[in-house]
Computed example of a mutant assay.
Amino acid sequence: MVLVTGGTGLVGSHLLLKLTMNNTEVRALYRTEDKLAQVKKIFSYYADDAASLFAKIDWVQGDILDIPSLENAFESINNVYHCAAYISFNPSDFKKLERINREGTANIVNICIAKGIKKLCHVSTIGTIGRTISNNQADEETEWTRQNANPYAITKHLAEMEVWRGAQEELEVVIVNPGVILGPGFWNAGSGSFFKTAAKGYQYYPPGGSGFITINDVTNIMIALMNSGIYNERFILVAENLTYQEILKKIAISMDKKPPFKSLKFWQLNIGKFADKLRNLMTGSPRTITKNTIYGLKHPTTFNNEKIKNALNMEFEGLDEQVKFSSKLFISEHS
């Protein structure tokens, strides 16, 4: 049996769908009942028998910071997919980020070692891949530093260190570092914000860009790595390096909207940073523009995906079909 943490998030829910469709015996952690409805919705996007697939999952209520609940969840488990994380780019959230992302991962690693788990797949981020200072693409060996890194990336780097500690204690591990993951259902976070932005038909797009990949590729690669003889390796998961203008154009066209055509200036972003901080203080809304965010927009990095392509002898699927599929679902849920 395999265990999935973070089973109610974008990666976790789509991973659970794949595992159940493959008839893999699976257990998943959840924190609150209301989160399960999101997983059922994700399943319904892809399968007519969504309810029967959902019923295959052995759901266990727990938390990666709660050792007793983890002890129960790990009974009879052979492999673990660790997808759980807290995502925030607000510097004031650092302690919470550090506790969930680093300490929570340390708990997972410790129990994996104690229970004799065969293999652990840890979902990280390209935020822990070092930035290049030239036009060369970053790869898994590019040196990473905390300088100008956002708090989420810092704590995910610390989480990776916990995973490598587990590897030193003979736990087989693989780490995946996905770029921006394109997939449906989570419209208020991650790539969902691109669909919300495109739907509003804004004229402006942010400078810079990132690496992008479909949720289908991410979950297929994770399963393939866990079923392979590969271990103690990390892999960048990026299908294409795109500017934000390019990805917003793709999404806008798929929604029959006019693509953005004006680049935001950095002085506008700096004004937006202060407005964003004020809104956060007054309403508690998540921070979206910080000093580190602006630095990343000024110094975009492109990513090399050759390592995973060679390891699995694979090619990434194109982004366009996922964009069309997700756009269709977004429109149906917001019309």
Rank of each mutant, 00 (worst) to 15 (best):
V2P: 06
K265I: 08
I215R: 03
L15G: 09
K115M: 09
T125P: 03
K18A: 15
P260C: 15
S76M: 07
F261S: 15
G166F: 08
Y244C: 13
F235W: 04
F212S: 13
E141K: 14
F274P: 00
S263E: 15
N107V: 13
A55G: 02
F94S: 03
K96F: 05
F186R: 08
D58M: 05
A149R: 04
T290K: 02
F303I: 09
R99W: 01
W144R: 03
A47V: 12
T288H: 03
P260I: 11
H334D: 05
V26Y: 04
A189V: 13
K56Q: 09
R146P: 00
Y202W: 07
M1P: 07
F316I: 07
D139H: 03
K257T: 02
I221W: 02
T283W: 06
C83W: 00
D48L: 14
E160L: 10
M255P: 01
S335I: 13
P184W: 06
P91S: 09
V176N: 02
A47P: 00
L225V: 09
I213F: 05
K35M: 11
T302W: 05
G179I: 10
D63K: 01
I271P: 00
A51E: 15
P68E: 13
N135K: 10
E141D: 15
N72R: 13
K41F: 00
T288C: 09
R234Q: 12
A37M: 07
C121H: 07
T105Q: 06
R165L: 09
T155E: 01
A84L: 05
S69Q: 03
A239S: 15
N270M: 14
L329K: 11
R146K: 11
K118C: 01
E162R: 04
S76Q: 12
S210E: 10
D217H: 01
S332E: 10
Y45F: 15
Q61I: 05
N305S: 14
T142R: 00
I175Q: 03
N270H: 07
K291S: 15
F94K: 07
G209R: 05
T214N: 11
E160K: 03
I175H: 01
M161K: 13
T142W: 02
L17D: 04
I154W: 01
G229T: 07
V2A: 13
